[in-house]
Design a protein around this nucleic acid. Structure first.
Lengths: 175, 175
DNA sequence: TCTGATTTTGAATGTCAAGTCAAATTTCAA
DNA sequence: TTGAAATTTGACTTGACATTCAAAATCAGA
């Protein structure tokens, strides 16, 4: 459901979906009980397909490294082509408008630029290896921000421990 | 706004927010023009605070490595304590219910387990260093899934190139 | 072609949450 | 103590969807 990836679950109306399917709203209800079921079915299908692809990679005759690498590449392709909305994100433009949206994007960019500067400095003084800053930045912020999704206070690690170990792992990309 | 982090932007009603603030809806409207503005103001505040913290880290007398590391730890802490919903995520339980939710979580776990197996294998045959699988898994999937947010077909890299370089960077965590 | 079954349609209905507002309450300075 | 300004209240309005449904259209086999 690429529409949903675009606009987000709640902001996508059944009419949007119907339009995308070249149907009318009523017609969609002939096939799906309700909106939740529709999203469920398609999400499930995508997950299952990804799962199958992953299983195939697992079964290939490759070194561990090559295998994990391939799994990652396949996964990335699925994410980007929207075949798996593994995670149903909300983009700022689904929440903010006009002036406000600009300001939020601006602040995020500022923040991101600071992070870039940190990476840049490290590369210049030779502490870090040369990398594509933009991508590494996305990786680092992405990995960290995603913690909102999975963090649970029930885990055995304290926030501080968690933060430290994640920082250390991510640092390895640059060392 | 921790409520929003819990339930997601659209699913959080003004009454939820008001309740959290120990106010009534009408009261909230005395201070904020509308829902979008309310979320904007608080989001902006959080971003600005994070920005300031980051600037402070920038200004400290530390090696590049220590500086970036500290920036990451602070960021993680902000993300986890919900002080910065840098990214407004949607968790599966905000979309699916009951049976469906279980099935989606199950499929995601299966997928995640496969990835774990790949990491495990590599650690066992000595290709990878020893890591905390769970965390590294979150980092890897998190970094990748986040691409939905920032990927734009306008970029100079093809999907394949992008997927490959991200895979390579992430692999560094394990080598 | 006819006919029953499948599918589509779009108008009608119901619900829920955003946003409004006049009246009630609280605050506080003189 | 008093009254004007600030704040809070909760009932009310409104609009935007999700969902329903009876009627119309399409299809497929006899």
């Amino acid at each position: 459901m690429s529409v949903i990836a675009e606009k987000g679950y709640h902001a996508t109306t059944m009419e949007d979906i119907a339009a995308k399917l070249l149907m009318t709203k009523g017609s969609v209800y002939y096939y799906f009980k309700d909106k939740e079921s529709l999203v469920y079915e398609s999400h499930k299908l995508l997950l299952e397909q990804s799962m199958e692809q992953l299983q195939n990679v697992l079964a290939e005759e490759l070194t561990s490294v090559a295998k994990l690498r391939k799994a990652m590449v396949v996964h990335m392709e699925n994410v980007i082509t929207g075949r798996t909305d593994f995670f149903i994100g909300v983009k700022p433009d689904q929440v903010f408008e006009g002036e406000h949206l600009q300001e939020i994007l601006h602040l995020r960019n500022q923040y991101s630029d600071c992070m870039n500067r940190l990476i840049q400095q490290g590369m210049e003084d030779g502490s870090f290896v040369q990398v594509d800053m933009k991508i590494v930045n996305y990786i680092i912020l992405g990995a960290m921000n995603n913690a909102v999704i999975w963090y649970s206070p029930k885990g055995s690690k304290s926030i501080e421990e968690l933060a430290n170990s994640i920082a250390d792992y991510l640092l390895k990309i640059l060392l």
